[in-house]
């Protein structure tokens, strides 16, 4: 009876969070659509070419639905988006979804690997800094955090390239090898970009980990755990880190926005043919449908990731399940 009730309550919580996400996604869609709506230039004139007559342009315009009202066009576009149609690239005429799909692998690889690097650096650093606040380790960790906020990702990237690819040629300067060509070449090309992006992203996560841990380490049950003679690592990880998890996963979700911006820049520096590179090329070519599609994709990914993180709170804190 009680179990059934709590499952229902959990279900209600999940549903409520999902429903709360819908207006945000709708707003993102409206903003992203308005961007294209406001964009200068007439796509019909571009598609028609230089020699087109005024009637021809008008015909293309009405066939594209460009002569309709904002609301009509938004509904049409939104309907397309829901069916997985993001329109066509002005530059190549190919569907935006297939352009993005082609470029997805390197971007996902870079995002996942940098997040991995960030967590591997940030969590131990934050935990140890909070364990001995004021120590040289703590000062070093927090100095690193301020530095991490201040160094743009391309700056660290170029320093790493200079060090590990030019002066000491152990890693490739740039480029990308798909996972299909073997894990070795793939990783060799990914080390520098993932490390550059991961290290900088680690700064924010380390700072939050430390703050959350400091809060938890003050609690009575930590003193009890220490008093009964548990090993330090058991106390720090089993008791403290587990209870500090919610602010940490929250900041990981928030930092995903920084990670996305970082991906766009890092792919440019390392010449990785991912979605970020697609974005930059689209900006240089004023290919608005592609810019719009990419921004929509990244924003929706960001919102959904944060929804998942919201839903994961239940795993860390049973009280939230109710």
């Amino acid at each position: 009876m009680c179990a059934a009730l709590s499952v229902l309550a959990m279900l209600e919580y999940v549903l409520r969070r999902i429903v709360a996400t819908i207006p945000v996604l709708l707003l993102v869609a409206i903003i992203v659509f308005s961007l294209l709506y406001l964009a200068p230039g007439d796509p019909a004139a571009v598609l028609a070419g230089d020699q087109a007559s005024a009637e021809e342009i008008a015909r293309i315009r009405s066939s594209l639905g460009l002569d309709q009202s904002f609301l009509q066009r938004f509904l049409q576009w939104g309907g397309g988006v829901l069916r997985g149609d993001l329109g066509q690239s002005v530059f190549s005429g190919r569907p935006v979804t297939s352009l993005i799909a082609q470029r997805l692998e390197p971007t996902i690889a870079l995002t996942v690997l940098s997040l991995l690097v960030a967590l591997l650096i940030a969590i131990p650093l934050g935990v140890l800094a909070a364990w001995r606040p004021g120590s040289w380790l703590d000062r070093g960790a927090m100095g690193f955090a301020v530095l991490g906020f201040s160094v743009p990702v391309f700056v660290l990237s170029y320093c790493l390239i200079l060090l590990l690819a030019v002066a000491l040629p152990v890693l490739p300067v740039q480029g990308y090898k798909p996972l299909m060509d073997g894990i070795g070449p793939f990783l060799r090309h990914m080390i520098l970009p993932a490390f550059a992006l991961g290290v900088l992203n680690a700064a924010l996560i380390a700072r939050t980990t430390r703050a959350a841990m400091l809060e938890v380490l003050r609690q009575d049950y930590i003193r009890t755990a220490q008093a009964k003679g548990l090993p330090v690592m058991r106390v720090l990880i089993g008791h403290a880190l587990k209870n500090a998890a919610i602010p940490i996963v929250t900041i990981i979700g928030i930092s995903f926005a920084m990670l996305i911006s970082g991906v766009v820049v890092t792919e440019t520096v390392f010449n990785i043919p991912g979605v970020g590179r697609l974005t930059v090329d689209a900006i240089l070519r004023r290919d608005y449908p592609v810019i719009q599609g990419v921004i929509l994709l990244f924003s929706v990914a960001y919102v959904l990731l944060n929804l998942l993180i919201d839903l994961s709170y239940g795993l860390f804190d049973p009280r939230i399940r109710l």
Binding site: V24, L27, I295
Partner: peptide
């Protein structure tokens, strides 16, 4: 605040990129 929520859901660099792309 709903409009702000929508704006904040778009990573700020991407939003800036889009706005600069429109206005040159």
């Amino acid at each position: 605040m709903r409009v702000m929520d929508g704006l904040m859901a778009i990573p700020s660099i991407l939003l800036a990129i889009a706005l600069v792309a429109i206005s040159g």
